[in-house]
Design a protein around this nucleic acid. Sequence first.
DNA 1: TGGATCCGTTAGGAATGCGTCAAGATCGGT
DNA 2: ACCGATCTTGACGCATTCCTAACGGATCCA
Lengths: 227, 227
Amino acid sequence: MATRVLVVDDDAHILRAIRIHLAACGYAVRTAQTGRAALRVSAAEHPDLVLLDLGLPDLDGTAVIAELRNWSTVPIIVLSARTDGTDKINALDTGADDYLTKPFSMPELLARMRAAVRRSGSPTDRDTVVATRDFSIDLAAKKVISRTGAQVHLTPTEWAILELLVRDRGALVSQRRLLSEIWGPAYRTETNYLRVYLAQLRRKLEPEPARPRYLITEPGMGYRFQD
Amino acid sequence: MATRVLVVDDDAHILRAIRIHLAACGYAVRTAQTGRAALRVSAAEHPDLVLLDLGLPDLDGTAVIAELRNWSTVPIIVLSARTDGTDKINALDTGADDYLTKPFSMPELLARMRAAVRRSGSPTDRDTVVATRDFSIDLAAKKVISRTGAQVHLTPTEWAILELLVRDRGALVSQRRLLSEIWGPAYRTETNYLRVYLAQLRRKLEPEPARPRYLITEPGMGYRFQD
DNA sequence: TGGATCCGTTAGGAATGCGTCAAGATCGGT
DNA sequence: ACCGATCTTGACGCATTCCTAACGGATCCA
């Protein structure tokens, strides 16, 4: 599922530029041009991250932060043209998570966004539990629970494969990537291993191991976790 | 209780300047001049925050971040003279929480430290007393009471292991993390210790030590407290 | 139709990791 | 200096997991 970002800036051009960039990087982008709009959208859609410009027409930027912090812990990254040190400190102490001074480099913004989302995501297993009709996978706890409530025991290798597939669930993961990440780059061509372990995973997880529904083979390319 | 900060920098002058500043602001400061020292102190003292200079003599800064992130979620703020964008991005993607380029203003550093600690502080507190059918564990009082009401005596090491497992109850705790946090990063591979102490804990807590119900082994990966 | 390629399945020996025990070393208090 | 408690270390048997090879089935193409 794509990370949802709310971008708040009164300049429509900047807004558009950032939106295009982020969308190209796989983010789901919402925008707002005023402080009140930002608060409204936040309450309605609960974004995973807020990019906030301080120079808004209706409300002071720090006021927006303070309002948000009354009920939300969403990560907030401030983007501002003001280089004054007190602005930074006020914003951070009001509840902002990070502060970038314009002009900033887009790669740095993206890296700081990843860091902010990573932090907020891990402590309260938000997206770490993937549930299907037949079992649920807890990536943080490294646990698989079958529909009957029993815990399914996986070996380290089985878990490594399942984790890779589930983290990119829906997407095709190439055999080369699986082999490289789990056995090392030297085993790039040992597709044997994958066949054996995928069979074991299916025996443990699929209702009908002979006709897999979740662990799908894409012949000649790789495997895919379908939920 | 004062926030404990570990400051890592190879330049003794900078180290001293930062230490004095932070101490004046009420922080409890520890210092390290090398990457290995930083890892050792982190494992021994569990600081609440790490300030890390990237230019260390023995290890690359990002290597220190990566090692720490194997077992710790302590906030890391990188302080670096390098203005190169790729350094920033690498550090952030490896697990750093923030990145300041030298020279920076001390008020800004302090504000970012407050922000980092604020984020990390709240979400991790859960119940301090965990009860099972056969015993109950009081994490705050560091006490274990058996079903008969008698207190179970645990040695310091036994308690350290049990506490780690119970704080993340249900989740798998890797042997690396256990060894790093209790014996230090250098003992990462001494899985012997875990076997011995888990056996002792089971003898003291499990109704059937030979068939553990609470202290579960996940072969090749780690241990898990199941309640 | 025949061949080639890729995949699923099975099984058994090799390698690894775990539980257990016991003895020596170390530490802390009297 | 002594003693008990705690920690370290090594060795052994056992269970699990991994690797590997072989075989049969499915699909595609000539």
